[in-house]
Amino acid sequence: MKITVHCLILGCLLLTGCWWDPVDRPLSYNVGIVDAYVPVYAQEGDAELEIAVLASRQTDSAGKIFAIGEKLFQVEQGKGIHIIDYSDKRNPKKLSFLQIPGCQEVAVKGQHLYTNSFEDLVVLDLATYPDVQVTAREPGVFPELSTSFPPQWGYYECPDPAKGRVIGWEIKRIENPKCYY
């Protein structure tokens, strides 16, 4: 049964895979000068790549949510997690911002917060908040999250791993972007 299902899926993939997969496949043609997303890089040792508790910040690109007790955790895609106190449901308040580069996921059990930093599974101990400790890091659990995609589909400048980690995107007028999804 499983094999049949997988064969069916494989068939679908083969039929439709060509136009679908959102991988950065270099374009073979030139699109000219266009507005396109350009990666913002950070390198090993940069403050942007550290896991840290910062002051609460504006939500720009809201992400997944997790509720526990009267706290809500909301991902800021690629950047970290907003910690929200909603004990007053008519007036929820942001408490702080957990900076976690490459973050997309969040779950909390007891005092521990489970998240990802790019492709790594990361566990944080919130017991001594606002002093938050990384208690574990499992590398490579999410291979598909090692590189990020621009917030919207369209042309974009292909990320160059040699320049560092992609921690964000900005729109710039550039010549012949080679990636598209």
Binding site: I68, E105, A107, N116
Partner: peptide
């Protein structure tokens, strides 16, 4: 101690003492 709850689009699921994680 409260039990938390995630959304329907998560890659994490907590059940008992286990964390289930999916990648592609």
């Amino acid at each position: 101690q409260p039990t938390g709850k995630g959304g329907s689009m998560a890659r994490f699921a907590l059940a008992g003492n286990y964390l289930y994680v999916v990648n592609t």
